[in-house]
Design a protein around this nucleic acid. Structure first.
Length: 833
DNA sequence: GCAAGGTC
């Protein structure tokens, strides 16, 4: 029996640190084993994994897509191998001498599987050590202490349920993805993927687009009258009772609408027929889970991806709780009063917190989902000051704080006033609403709480008609799903998880299935969904997940086995492949056609063939003729971003406009032929001598416009000399009389058509130097462990970029940078790889 | 290089 330490294993480093703090009474020491944090106190060690540290995959001999028939993957073996070598090695090292192991991964199915993976790694090196499992749903003193006082055993059945999912997802996903990619001859980066979650998500988007395409708009009319009482005006709308006796505002017949309007136009007054007052209670919202957080962040302009990334940063910095949760019920341990009082006296939140603390009773709201995974998202007692956060981070942090405030605030009260009046036989109605008790709206301004005014009137009263309007309208097609609606719908359908839904949407963008925001499906996406519907219905249906969920529950209850469930799934996939393989060519042709349609910009002016977007061997995009090599017509595209063909076309050339997608730097390039012609017409403006070849060959620097639409300061001897400096894409370039003494070049100013302030860019060489320094700085900041300030210090010490950091001698660099030791430098160097 | 699920 070893008398080594007791080893506690958690799912992530953050949890390891907090659990160690709780169990040790905050007397914990941190050390690094293989570059992994290990927390140690007394005879205990605590290590955090990084989710799954082993992955499932086929053996290497199945790696070649061409050599292996996709159908062979169905019965191929599935192996597990370490994916996080350093963590696995650290775990093994600690487990070897451990006297006891406690698995403390998250309290959900995936956590049980991650725990089992850790268990197996432990067993590899230590056959006898006892292994326990503890379960708690939030990392608080009471829950953690209690869990460790009552250890349980790993639930191998629950873990097996998770393993069945892993295998089924891999086999179906890989086999079908390879089949589609091979059939369409898409083997590079642009393979064609399908899977249990992305399939139905894509179908959701495609189905909505089909509805939009099939939509046939209908004309209708709406009539309005402005009424007035004692000089106070308000709007009313005409309505009638339809065949079913329901109130209707839309008039579907033009003649009817015209007739009603003629009557309305002629009336001078309307008589009040009924007045109804009602108060409505407006309950505060439930605590945030991931989906509702993403939705709220979406309403203030953040994409799902961005919202989650900011939340992640706020979580790691300790300002808010774990952002991936299904739970909408605060744990009992959370004392809202205590948390509120942390905000008391705060510059931004103090007043609101104090007003909430004055309430007679503080009773938080609760949603419908009570799960064991993590608590709902809420701020921790640790408060950042605005200078600790970027503007976006602060905005998201404020949202989280205010949502917490709202959940402990009182309900709001609205007074609704509904007035119906008669105008020469026509019914008019007006709905007013007034917020009589602001309640939670006072601390949570993200919901619409605008009022609409209708004065207090009484039955029988005469109201003046001051104006009338008739509006002709059309019924609208259903709206595309926005990102947050998509995530909500996925949650409702039961596909994906809190941690993956937003990634799935990103994946659809990356695969060329959707574009723009709200996402619109490409032709390729339609074809993939069509192929799925015809040959592999399950892979585009939420049924697959529903069935899998049932099977997993059966495994977890011990009523089914992992082998039984995966074997059955493999048989179903065999059947799918029978159909697919007999129609492989047809499927491939269909996909290829759509791929080409997605890339076609228009007709080639030289030969009448199709102009398509292509990628050069260097990886940049350009437009070329599909009849190449017979026709060599080309047009350049900007070097930043990924081209997207837009729906509208150029009046002159009939080519589709092109948009360049580059995240937040996305811009519309327009007609590529117009851009090229503009560049051909523009003469280069010489501004000075080329620093590279001026003395020797007389090269000059000039402001140039390229056919790709970009502008630069470049040498007139190009291509013999390729010296160049970048210029911004937008705005007009102006050469000022002011000049740079160091480089003897005029200073440049950028002006804009809109009301934006001009930008004094200055000397183009100086400007480029600054830009490069900034780029290198952010490159340095991308290295784990280096923040903005450290990056600045490193630059001051002569470390301009990442490669310089890697080559630096650790001791020398540590001497040159305040507060940094050689070990830290080595760590950065390791992280930089 | 394929999926989906953890986490960073």
């Amino acid at each position: 029996m070893s008398n080594g330490p007791e080893l506690i294993i958690t799912e992530k480093d953050n949890a390891a640190r907090r659990i160690a703090d709780i169990l040790s009474g905050e007397s914990v020491e941190a050390e690094r084993v293989n570059g992994v944090n290990v927390y140690k106190w007394g005879g205990k060690r605590c290590i955090g994994l990084s989710g799954h540290v082993v992955g499932v995959d086929f053996p290497p001999e199945y790696n070649d897509w061409r050599d292996v028939e996709p159908v062979e993957l169905i019965d191929a073996p599935v192996d597990k191998h370490p994916t996080q070598e350093n963590i696995v090695a650290a775990l093994r090292r600690l487990a070897r001498r451990a006297r006891r192991v406690v698995i403390a991964t998250d309290y959900d199915r995936e956590g049980e599987l991650i725990g089992k993976e850790a268990y197996e790694l432990v067993r590899d090196v230590n056959e006898d050590v006892p292994v326990d499992r503890v379960r708690f749903s939030s990392i608080t003193d009471r829950e953690v202490t209690e869990a460790f006082e009552n250890p349980d055993e790993l639930d191998f059945d629950l873990a097996a349920a998770g393993e069945a999912r892993q295998i089924i997802d891999l086999v179906w996903g890989a086999a079908l993805t390879r089949f589609l990619s091979l059939s369409a001859r898409q083997l590079g980066d642009d393979f064609i993927s399908v899977g249990r979650v992305q399939g139905p998500t894509l179908k959701l988007i495609v189905d909505r687009e089909r509805e939009i395409d099939a939509f046939d708009p209908e004309d209708y009319w709406e009539l309005f009258a402005d009424l007035e009482k004692d000089g106070e005006g308000f709007e009313s709308q005409y309505f009638y009772l339809d065949d079913d006796g329901n109130e209707a505002e839309r008039v579907w017949d033009g003649d009817d609408a015209e007739a009603a309007y003629e009557t309305l136009e002629d009336v001078a007054a309307a008589t009040v027929e009924s007045v109804r007052r009602r108060t409505r209670t407006d309950e505060p919202p439930a605590p945030f889970n991931t989906t509702q957080f993403i939705r709220a962040a979406g309403s203030i302009g953040y994409s799902a991806q961005r919202a989650m990334s900011i939340a992640e940063d706020l979580y790691t910095a300790g300002y808010m709780t774990y952002p991936r949760t299904d739970n909408t019920v605060y744990p009992e341990d959370l004392d809202p009063e205590e948390l509120l009082s942390e905000f008391s006296g705060h510059r931004t939140f103090g007043e609101d917190a104090d007003s909430l603390l004055e309430q007679e009773e503080i009773e938080p709201t609760a949603g419908d989902n009570e799960t064991t995974d993590h608590p709902p998202i809420h701020p921790t007692g640790e408060l950042p000051s605005p200078s600790d956060l970027s503007e976006d981070e602060w905005e998201v942090y404020e949202l989280v704080v205010r949502r917490f405030f709202a959940t402990v605030a009182e309900s709001a009260e609205w007074e609704h006033l509904r007035v119906v009046a008669d105008a020469d036989g026509l019914s008019l109605k007006a709905n007013g609403k007034r917020l009589v008790e602001a309640g939670y709206h006072a601390v949570y301004p993200y919901f619409n709480s605008s009022e609409s005014f209708v004065p207090a009137v009484e039955e029988g009263e005469e109201l003046a008609v001051t104006d009338t309007r008739i509006e002709d309208k059309q019924t609208q097609p259903p709206r595309r799903y926005g990102q947050s609606r998509l995530i909500e719908t996925m949650e409702k359908m039961g596909i994906g998880t809190k941690a993956t839904r937003h990634d799935v949407i990103q994946k659809l963008y990356d695969r060329g299935y959707i574009e723009s925001d709200p996402p619109k499906p490409t032709r390729l996406a339609r074809s993939v969904v069509e192929a799925g519907e015809e040959f592999a219905e399950l892979i585009v249906s939420e049924e697959m997940t529903a069935q899998l969920e049932q099977d997993m529950q059966a495994i977890a209850r011990g009523e089914a086995t992992l082998e039984g469930v995966t074997d059955e799934s493999r048989e179903i996939l065999e059947d799918v492949f029978e159909g697919l393989m007999s129609s492989g060519e047809e499927v491939g042709e269909h996909l290829q056609k759509s791929l080409k349609a997605d890339k076609t910009v228009g007709t080639c002016p030289d030969c009448g063939g199709d102009l398509v977007i292509r990628k050069s061997r260097r990886g940049s995009y350009f437009i070329g003729c599909d009849s190449y090599p017979d026709c060599t017509y080309t047009l350049p595209l900007p070097s930043t971003g990924k081209p997207l063909i837009m729906e509208d076309t150029c009046d002159e050339h009939e080519l589709h406009h092109v948009k360049m997608l580059a995240g937040r730097k996305t811009f519309v390039h327009g007609c590529p032929l117009c851009k090229a012609e503009e560049a051909d017409e523009q003469e280069d403006l010489v501004i000075g001598t080329c620093p590279e070849c001026g003395e020797e060959h007389g090269g000059e620097l000039a402001i140039k416009r390229l056919r790709s639409g970009s502008r630069l300061v470049g040498c007139t001897r190009y291509p013999d000399c390729d010296y160049s400096l970048p210029l911004p894409r937008r705005g007009d370039v102006e050469v000022t009389d002011d000049s740079c003494e160091e480089h003897d070049l005029p200073k440049i100013r950028i002006t804009y058509d809109d009301d934006r302030e001009p930008w004094d860019l200055g000397c183009p060489i100086c400007n480029y130097r600054e830009y490069q320094a900034q780029q290198n700085g952010s490159e340095l900041e991308a290295v784990k462990g280096i923040g903005e300030k450290t990056a600045q210090k490193l630059q001051d010490a002569g470390i301009g970029d990442v490669s310089a950091l890697k080559e630096a001698e650790p001791d020398a660099l540590a001497d040159a940078v305040d507060g940094v030791g050689p070990d830290t430098v080595r760590e950065w160097q390791a992280n930089a790889d």
